[in-house]
Amino acid sequence: MGLWAVVCGDRGHVTVERLTPLRQITGERRQRIQAFVVASLLALAVWQMMTFISGGWVPSLWRIFKALGADATTANTYAEMWITLRRIFITFAAATAIGVGLGVAMGLSRRVTVFFRPIVVMALAVPDIVYIIVAILVLGTDESSGLIAMVLALVPFVVNIVIGGVGARDPGLDEMSSVYRLQRLRYLVDVVAWQVSPALMAATRTCFAFSWKLIVLVEALSQPRGIGAQIYYSFRLLRPDHMIAQAILFIMVLRLIEAITFGPLERKLLGWMQ
């Protein structure tokens, strides 16, 4: 019979695999598993030590585990999570679309680069909290202010990664497409987009990772609903075990989303490299 597990692969793909007994696993894989187990146990030991040193302010592993069980079985947790996920999706989609569009345009056109480069460089240097505060001051604590702030904060990161990818494209393929008179759209789709796809994937993953971290921060600062607001609420009620439990639950959901969306997409886009 044996044990079965859902496994997230190196490239983010998810598979269901039968667990092999540790004694039958050899080589590099065995080393990786051993390293993971040692690192996890070490982290848990350090955490438990912090609990003792802090005199109980840092919740024990057992308290966190209990809070995790309680929050995972509460419908409200998922309602709040859904609100946050919706915000993440909007921010992520807008920032990726704008960032990729601008990045490709800058990578292909010197004029566009000359105009936008200083703006992008400046925008990269601005701390994210400044975007959030300015958006709240200008637009109020409305939901849209946080989303706009996040899009503004994320776009420069995406642009920066995409420009690098477009700039590193093979000039030989540009010549080929020029000789065979490929139409502009075909050139962008068949020649540029595929070359830039590794950078696009990197930009998308970066954008996704940043967007959820920042959205949680925005929710904590200015929103009454969402996981960020719930984490901050738990903090104000001095319930650090629930604060950590909600964060863990949210991270697990996001990792799952990342694995089932980015993994297959990456394999489809980069399959030709295998």
């Binding site: 030989g172 010549e175 080929m176 068949d190 490299m273």
Partner: peptide, 10 residues
């Protein structure tokens, strides 16, 4: 061309 310049993703 000197090198083939085929699209490797096609």
């Amino acid at each position: 061309f000197q090198d083939h310049r085929l699209l490797p993703w096609r």
